[in-house]
């Protein structure tokens, strides 16, 4: 940040905002991302290498997080699994933003489209997200791409609803009415006047969606409707450890800690962003 900008914000405010939840959440998230991004490159252990002699080994110097029922290194699996989770989280956040912004602008700005689309959205909101994703997965081959697609479809209605309410309140504001009165073409109103003012609530919503996508992905994997069993994901690793959980809790403990920490980081970041960007616009959850 350059000198003038930091003066405008005021040093104190900047320091206070950086000391808050945004830093805590952001740090947690970056830490997990760096670990999962780089450790597999350095470590080089094959997360799918089976070693029957080393089954159910507790955590030790050689196997940091122990091994599972096939003797696979859980540390390597958790690291690679983190990549999948983060990729799914970010992809879903970006894709559902694109879809939701498009639909939200249409429903928020054009009254006739709103009447029809709102009913459809209501119906989509009535279907539990997990179930919608499950049905989509059940009809396609299991793959990361299809998981991303399925979760995106179930998240888009939420973004659309938020976007719709933001656009509805914006279109009644003086600067938009002025633009309409001045004869500005509709696409330009949407692009220049409406869209830039929706960014603050959208960024916050994107963060929460990223968190909920990571959870949904793990749930789908856990119940066997997610990534194929050959791909290590946090949900898959936990599902693998399910039957041995009472004897070897480490099989569930480590992926569970990583999963929870990551989502916690994302949600703390989202809460912090919301408090700073615009507390009034994104009250609803």
């Amino acid at each position: 940040m350059d000198e003038t900008a930091s003066h405008r914000f005021g040093r104190l405010r900047l320091a206070r905002s950086l000391g808050g939840p945004v830093v805590v959440g952001g740090t947690l998230l970056i830490l997990v991302a760096l670990l999962c991004g780089f450790v597999p490159l350095i470590d080089g252990t094959d997360p799918n290498a089976i070693s029957p002699v080393n089954r159910f080994k507790p955590p030790s110097g050689r196997y940091l997080f122990g091994t599972d029922g096939l003797g696979r290194d859980i540390f390597a699996r958790v690291m690679v699994g983190g990549r999948v989770s983060l990729i799914v989280g970010f992809s879903v956040a970006i894709l559902s933003m694109i879809g939701g912004v498009f639909l939200g602008i249409i429903t928020g700005y054009f009254r006739t489209a709103d009447a029809v689309l709102s009913r459809v959205l209501e119906a989509f909101m009535a279907i539990p997200a997990v179930l919608l994703a499950i049905s989509l997965i059940a009809l396609t081959q299991p793959s990361i791409r299809n998981v991303i697609f399925a979760i995106t479809v179930s998240e888009i209605p939420r973004v659309t609803r938020l976007m719709r309410s933001v656009v509805l309140s914006l279109r009644n504001q003086a600067f938009v009415e002025a633009a309409v009165a001045a004869g500005t073409p509709v696409p330009q109103i949407l692009w220049r006047h409406i869209l830039p003012n929706t960014f603050a609530p959208l960024i916050v919503q994107a963060t929460f969606i990223c968190g909920s996508a990571v959870i949904l992905e793990s749930i789908l994997s856990f119940i066997g409707a997610g990534a194929p069993p050959t791909v290590p994901t946090w949900g898959n690793i936990i599902a693998d450890g399910r039957n041995y959980f009472q004897l070897y809790p480490h099989m569930i403990f480590f992926p569970a800690v990583f999963l929870s920490t990551t989502v916690l980081g994302i949600n703390i970041l989202g809460d912090g962003l919301r408090d700073q960007l615009d507390p009034r616009m994104v009250r609803n959850i």
Binding site: P249, A256, L264
Partner: peptide, 22 residues
């Protein structure tokens, strides 16, 4: 309010089972 949203149901479930059942 934040932990309930961040820790998936099955993680809480296994934690409870581990402490209170096992």
């Amino acid at each position: 309010g934040i932990v309930g949203f961040s820790v998936p149901v099955f993680v809480i479930a296994y934690l409870l089972v581990w402490v209170f059942s096992v």
